[in-house]
Design a protein around this nucleic acid. Structure first.
Lengths: 184, 184
DNA sequence: ACGGACATGTAAGCAGTTACATGATTGC
DNA sequence: GCAATCATGTAACTGCTTACATGTCCGT
């Protein structure tokens, strides 16, 4: 089984609705999928070129303000490939969680180090949680039944909220355990 | 900031206590850290060579059954590097969650597809949950205060248990929402 | 005898990152 | 005038994976 570049699907998915510039894609991804999917400049621009060469997307020059920008739109061939990927089984992929690896090796250091890492992560999570809570409760408080993209977007946001809750729960449980005097 | 290979730390961590063969490392990692850290043969064996060349670990021939195996043990230099990594701040790293990306683009397909992916994931999670529950409740039921490695190992296991709970919660919430007749 | 675990590697290649580059426009 | 944002890329490198290879030991 060949491992294939998934950046292409992130791009095709972003272009499925409306044409956008590379910059638009990058920015929208950063604003909406950052907690579960990231792309860098260096992955987006070359992939755009590649997708054009493959006939999956089509560049069009258009005015944006005073300058001419390259807007990309998806072709029927691109739509087809995207649809196939959407229907295909989700590949599992590897994931590496450095905090957990350090925790796992906790006995090889002093427990203060692990506590430090856990508390640092807790602080960071609390910040993200605040941001998410704001979007969840203020920006997208109710489920807009008429806008299906918003439904799905909110769904992925809820995933972030729930995952953070869970990680905080684990951190608190772990901190309680570690701060127990009996444990060295 | 240079991105560095973390496989080295997984190996150094595994060797911190006792000497092991490459195979031991691979197997132990697969049995204990699989849910948050994976290594393949092709990452372990070359890294062992590299670490030997760097003087971080030392190979020793030893008998294991009838055959001579190469046991690796960590050197003071290796211990030092490992300790530095343990103390250093956890790097965030990227993570990509394909199921969430497909969910995010759900409006570009029919909702049956997303439901299929969610239910497939649910089934898989239920299986892992069963395995984890068994280890959590039967194999490692109580926290052994005298064995600090076990404490940390159980901690990472608990992380798996909690994360799965959370993901199942999200899936159920999402399925309920999608199966609501009002949504297309 | 045979299957499963033990045991150890190499080669090829794509993916994806960091660092490096550059320049215009808009709002304060 | 300056900073932030918009906008678009390349080069070099590393990481990591898949596929390929090979052989032994042990229990049944």
């Amino acid at each position: 089984m060949n491992k294939i570049n998934k950046t292409r699907y992130a791009i095709l998915g972003m272009l499925f609705g409306d044409p956008r510039t590379g910059y638009d894609i990058k920015k929208t991804l950063a604003e909406t999928t950052a907690h579960f999917w990231q792309e860098t400049d260096a992955s987006i621009y070359p992939m755009l070129k590649k997708l054009v060469a493959e006939g999956k997307i089509k560049p069009t020059s258009a005015f944006r303000g005073k300058q001419t920008r390259t807007l990309y739109s998806i072709t029927p061939s691109g739509k087809k490939e995207f649809a196939q990927w959407m229907a295909a089984d989700v590949e599992s992929g590897t994931h590496r969680h450095e905090l957990l690896l350090k925790t796992f090796f906790g006995a090889s250091t002093n427990k203060a180090t692990i506590i430090k890492h856990l508390e640092s992560r807790k602080k960071k999570l609390k910040e993200i949680q605040k941001k998410f809570a704001y979007i969840d409760l203020i920006v997208m408080p109710e489920i807009p039944k008429d806008n299906s993209h918003k439904i799905y977007q909110k769904m992925t946001l809820r995933n972030g909220v729930i995952r953070i809750e869970a990680e905080l729960k684990w951190i608190d449980e772990s901190l309680t355990l570690l701060k127990n005097k009996g444990i060295k």
